[in-house]
């Protein structure tokens, strides 16, 4: 339709005919076209407004209120004051940041390692890439069930293997001992998420022109030098984007942690997401949970902005604006 119209309009003979036949309708159509983007955007704007923006605003308002049996009273900063004096909240903030930073490092390292390995040309490479993507495709619940069985003190494969090591107590409590539970969670979440990072990094690696490597080889650059001077600077933008995504994904991680340790032992694996869930749906303190969620949102935004700033100022200056070193 658009193509036909363009032909008609572009034809010098047709122009007067068109103007004569349509008259003011052309102007009307132009007006319609100028509003078209708004009309096309309207459904998504309404959807986002109703189901994303409104709940966030409502959640923030709830944080300043106390609701009881339909009676809502304005309590100002009382919920936030309670939060400031709540050691469990601060323990959760600490756990969240420890977990998030650990995940950013583990996901990116693992993703980069696997991407570099699968970027090599070898027989059956496509099959290996397909197999490596499987963890990402498995839903959370089967993942947790598989890991809890693998980590079971009595029947888990890990303890069977550990029992072969001299001096190791074979009933290691992977999910209930304080430090081990945290490591077990990181392992499980890393396993589940690394294919995403490796696939994105792999696509970035494949975009690097082979000429660069050929030239470097001619200049006598070894494998490590080629990685340091060509590969890494080329994938820095991808890595920095993935770092932000890893931060966001790990910050909001809930299912895997809740189903495997429930936030325990003590508060050792209780992230802000777990604490908010417990406050809202175990303790029914919806207002206090909303206050925590509002602070959690701020922390997530702060963390994301921090990552972006670091990415722009430090990494870009060093690897991109400073040229390939």
């Amino acid at each position: 339709m658009a193509a036909t119209e363009a032909l008609v309009i572009d034809s010098p003979e047709a122009k007067p005919v068109r103007r004569a036949s349509r008259g003011n309708s052309f102007g009307r159509q132009a007006g319609l076209r100028s509003n078209l983007h708004l009309k096309l955007l309207a459904p998504i704007l309404v959807f986002e407004g109703l189901f994303v923006v409104y709940p966030i605003i409502r959640g923030v308002i709830l944080a300043f209120q106390q609701t009881n049996y339909g009676k809502t009273s304005w309590v100002g900063l009382a919920n936030f004051r309670q939060m400031i004096h709540d050691p469990i909240f601060w323990a959760s903030v600490r756990t969240t940041f420890e977990f998030t930073l650990a995940m950013v490092v583990v996901w990116l390292s693992l993703g980069l390692g696997v991407a570099l390995l699968t970027n090599w040309a070898f027989k059956g490479r496509s099959l290996v890439r397909g197999i490596l993507a499987i963890p990402w495709a498995i839903p959370d619940v089967p993942t947790v069930l598989t890991f809890t069985i693998m980590l079971d003190p009595n029947f888990g494969i890990l303890n069977r293997i550990a029992s072969w090591i001299p001096g190791v107590h074979h009933q290691i409590q992977w999910l209930t001992a304080p430090n081990l539970a945290f490591i077990a969670i990181i392992t499980m979440v890393a396993w589940k998420g690394f294919p995403f990072y490796s696939l994105v990094i792999l696509s970035s690696l494949q975009a690097i022109p082979d000429d660069l490597y050929e030239a470097a080889k001619v200049d006598g650059a070894g494998a490590f030098q080629r990685f340091r001077s060509i590969t890494f600077p080329s994938i820095v933008p991808t890595l920095s984007l993935l770092a932000v995504l890893a931060f966001i994904f790990s910050f909001q991680q809930f299912t895997l942690i809740y189903l495997s340790t429930g936030g325990g032992p003590g508060q050792d694996t209780s992230t802000i997401a777990i604490l908010i869930y417990n406050q809202a749906f175990q303790y029914f303190n919806y207002n206090y949970a909303s206050a925590m969620a509002a602070v959690g949102l701020l922390l997530a935004v702060f963390g994301t902005v921090l990552f972006v700033v670091i990415e722009r100022r430090v990494i870009r200056q060093r690897y991109l604006e400073g040229g390939l070193s």
Partner: peptide
């Protein structure tokens, strides 16, 4: 009325005793 809350608090703390720490 705080059955679940008390239970959650006791269980999360007691897990340390279960693990021997």
């Amino acid at each position: 009325y705080a059955y679940a809350e008390i239970g959650n608090i006791i269980a999360t703390n007691l897990e340390r005793a279960v693990s021997g720490s």
